[in-house]
Simulated scan of single mutants.
Amino acid sequence: MELVVYLAGQIHDDWRDKLRQMAKERNLPLIFKGPQEDHDLSDDIGERIKGKQPNAVYRDQAASEVNNLRTRIWMQKADVVIALFGEKYRQWNTAMDAAMAIAAQKPLILIRPESLHHPLKELSQRAQLVVETPEQALDALAYVLE
Rank of each mutant, 00 (worst) to 15 (best):
R126Y: 09
P119E: 05
A78F: 04
P119H: 09
W74A: 09
Q36D: 09
I73Y: 12
V144S: 08
I111Y: 04
A63L: 02
E122K: 14
M1D: 11
L123V: 10
Y89R: 13
K88Y: 06
I109G: 01
I111S: 06
L41S: 07
E37I: 07
Q128W: 01
R20Q: 11
R48H: 13
M100Y: 14
K50H: 14
K121I: 06
L28T: 03
R72F: 14
K50R: 13
P35A: 10
E122Q: 13
K88A: 01
Y89M: 05
I82G: 02
I45Y: 00
N27V: 00
K33M: 10
P113E: 02
V131Q: 01
R16F: 02
A142R: 15
Q136V: 00
D97R: 14
A98T: 09
G86N: 15
Y143G: 08
K50S: 12
L120D: 02
S64R: 10
R26W: 03
R126L: 13
Q36G: 07
Q61L: 10
S124K: 06
P35R: 12
P134N: 07
R20G: 00
P35V: 01
Q128G: 11
H39M: 08
L110T: 08
A99Y: 10
R90E: 05
N68F: 13
Y89S: 11
R90P: 11
G34D: 05
L141N: 06
K88I: 00
D97L: 10
R20S: 03
W74Y: 15
K121Y: 09
H39L: 08
V81G: 07
Y89E: 12
A98Q: 13
K50P: 01
A103P: 01
Q105R: 14
A62G: 01
M22L: 12
K121H: 11
I102K: 07
Y143M: 01
A140T: 10
A101H: 07
E2S: 10
Y6E: 04
E25G: 07
D79N: 14
D139C: 03
R26Y: 03
E2Q: 12
V130C: 11
Q105S: 10
G86H: 12
A142T: 09
S124I: 05
H118N: 14
A103N: 13
P54R: 12
G9S: 02
W92S: 13
A8G: 10
T71N: 15
D13F: 01
V131A: 03
H118R: 15
E47W: 06
Y6I: 02
Q21A: 13
A8V: 00
L7I: 03
L7S: 05
A83R: 08
P113V: 01
K52D: 12
L145C: 09
A95L: 14
L28E: 07
V80G: 04
S64L: 05
L3E: 11
I45H: 00
L30D: 07
E114S: 14
D79V: 09
R20C: 08
A78H: 09
I111N: 06
D79H: 15
A99P: 11
P54G: 08
W15A: 04
M96V: 15
P119S: 06
W74H: 15
E65F: 12
P134M: 06
A63H: 05
M96L: 15
T71Y: 13
L116Y: 08
N68Q: 15
D139F: 00
H118T: 13
Y89I: 04
R112C: 04
N93F: 00
S124N: 04
K18Y: 05
T94C: 09
L120H: 03
